[in-house]
């Protein structure tokens, strides 16, 4: 086991320094939540084990101690209860941020998210805005038992009225969580759990880009590779290892999608590979492929390829290395689009 969790996400009451620092994605989320809570006393956190324990990933570490039990609620063990009461609190003017302990445990709360959270603005014609964030650690690669490694983002992106984002690095985690809390729409906020303890640069003096924008991380002329969440790191590693120049785009926002940079890149490279851990069927990657063929049909030199999890349940963890897209599978797909 690594060092005690307190030393990883724990902030000890300190926000990030003003200027560049190298911090973990987990700590960036912790700092971002703290900043949002300091900025608006209507921001409250709700979830299982998020108080004294600081959450099973320690994302809320120290926040109950500093903001009290009325701002950081250790709720009873029921996700429908968490989302449903958070909706009530939002109706009352609070800005609840709900933590779902693991991707696979959001489903008891799915009814409230799909039937109510997504539709209250529409039904009330704007009189009842839903300022509510649902944080979900997602994805596999951590050797966990069932229901702890899933990628259900497409299920939420399919629901009108919800906004869906996924962060992939510390700076995005820090800013995107604050922007999501600030949003007047409900945001399903996906966190790449296997990247929680990876460090990257956060410079709080650099103004963030708007929440619902994708981002070009690396430019290249041979082919475009699109990813989000935990696969961004994998794709960057693949691009570093490739013997050609790959353009890498982090989608960041899954609903609404921001595909202008992708269209632009595909028009230049003529080739696209979409990468995600989630099963490919009826997914974010399917949506990207469909829109790209529509917008960029005459620029495409090869079929759009997808590298995804299989259309099966998430397997026992000893098989996850086969299931999850890795550097080799990404490069294999790149070779295949380049072969055209």
């Amino acid at each position: 086991m690594a060092a005690p969790a307190t030393d990883r996400a724990g902030s000890g009451g300190q926000g990030p320094s003003n200027g560049p620092s190298n911090i973990t994605l987990a700590k960036a989320l912790n700092d971002g939540l703290r900043a949002a809570m300091e900025g608006d006393d209507k921001v409250i956190l709700m979830g299982e084990d998020i108080g004294k324990l600081g959450g099973v990933f320690r994302i809320t570490d120290g926040l109950q101690k500093d903001f009290g039990e009325q701002r950081v609620l250790d709720t009873p063990l029921a996700e429908s209860g968490i989302i449903g009461t958070a909706i009530g609190l939002a109706l009352r003017g609070f800005r609840p941020v709900c933590e779902i302990q693991f991707d696979g445990f959001v489903f008891p709360g799915f009814d409230q998210i799909v039937s109510q959270l997504s539709k209250l603005r529409y039904r009330s014609q704007g009189k009842l805005p839903m300022r509510l964030v649902v944080r979900i650690p997602f994805g596999g690669g951590i050797g966990a038992v069932e229901h702890h490694s899933e990628s259900p983002e497409s299920l939420f992106a399919h629901v009108a009225g919800l906004k869906v984002v996924a962060c992939s690095n510390a700076a995005d985690a820090y800013w995107m969580i604050q922007q999501a809390i600030d949003s007047d729409d409900p945001v399903i906020f996906f966190e790449p759990k296997r990247r929680y303890w990876e460090k990257s640069e956060l410079d709080t003096s650099v103004k963030p880009r708007p929440l619902h924008t994708s981002r070009v991380l690396r430019t290249g002329s041979a082919a475009t590779v699109v990813a989000y969440g935990p696969m961004v790191r994998t794709v960057l590693d693949a691009a570093a290892a490739a013997d050609c120049e790959l353009e890498v785009i982090d989608l960041r926002t899954l609903s609404p999608l921001d595909l202008a940079p992708v269209f632009d890149a595909v028009r230049r490279t003529g080739r696209l590979v979409c990468v995600a851990e989630a099963p490919g069927e009826s997914s974010i990657t399917a949506e990207v492929a469909a829109r790209v063929q529509q917008e960029c049909f005459y620029s495409l030199e090869a079929p759009v390829l997808r590298v995804t999890g299989f259309d099966t349940p998430y397997p026992p963890s000893k098989c996850e290395e086969y299931y999850l897209p890795d550097l080799d599978r990404v490069l294999d797909a790149v070779d295949r689009v380049l072969a055209h």
Binding site: A5, V56, F57, F102, Y196
Partner: peptide, 15 residues
């Protein structure tokens, strides 16, 4: 070898 994470979590394990 699986990649791993120290989750401090109910039912996940580091591989």
């Amino acid at each position: 070898a699986g990649s791993s994470i120290d989750t401090e979590e109910p039912l996940a394990g580091s591989s």
